[in-house]
Design a protein around this nucleic acid. Structure first.
Lengths: 123, 123
DNA sequence: CGGCATCCCCTTGGATACTG
DNA sequence: CAGTATCCAAGGGGATGCCG
């Protein structure tokens, strides 16, 4: 076994964490925060296609996991900034490897899909 | 922008790939196949908690993406082996970084969750 | 053994409206 | 601005049964 925990076991702690991390929106948010704090509606606008409900939920989970901080400024109207914690920053860098891999190998994957679909249609 | 494509845009190819990769089961399957080919029911038994329907669907997606090969041996009853392609192996290694990160930082995350929940209950 | 088909539930997430 | 609350539709995924 290569891991301290058996990641194939149900209910192993690593899986819990993996569950949280294997989230498209979480990865995108983490990535978007790498350049510094961002306000709620700014995130909402930048990350196209996310609803405010899902953004809110995802941010809350990330905050609970200690990956993101939520800072409220008592302006009128109120301003809320989200920023990476050191932990979140470290994860963001790890996750960026995945995003970069996706980008570099996208062509190969798209080609494989086309070939697969063509072979299917032929039958 | 750090990426060739704007990953925050809806409908960008990188997001399509990321969508597929941000899948707990896919990551676990990729990881499980790193030591060599595995048969369907063997995978099903090893990866606790996955249903055969979801396993089947996930494997089909991975095959379509060119990450996994499916080989049928005409025994009776039939034997089917799944194995990583070079592309799949490369992704598996990248994904392993995520899994390892999860394992190494799990304690910090669990502690953050406990602190968050405690602060909530107190109010 | 390795699936696919069917049924069915129940969660996820979108749309909308409202509040501090 | 930054959410929460409510409603509702779609589909993801479990359970079961059947087949090559």
């Amino acid at each position: 076994m290569r891991y301290a925990y058996n990641v194939y076991e149900d209910r192993c702690p690593t899986r819990m964490v993996l569950d949280r991390l294997a989230d498209k929106w979480a990865l995108l948010i983490l990535d978007r925060l790498e350049d510094g704090p961002v306000r709620f509606n700014h995130l909402r606008r930048d990350i196209k296609g996310i609803s405010q409900k899902v953004l809110s939920q995802t941010l809350k989970k990330l905050e609970r996991d200690g990956l993101v901080t939520r800072t409220v400024y008592p302006t009128v109207p109120v301003t809320v900034e989200y920023a990476l914690t050191p932990l979140g920053r470290a994860l963001g860098e790890t996750a960026a490897a995945l995003t970069h891999w996706a980008e570099h190998n996208m062509d190969a994957i798209l080609a494989a899909q086309a070939a697969y679909d063509a072979a299917l249609a032929e039958r």
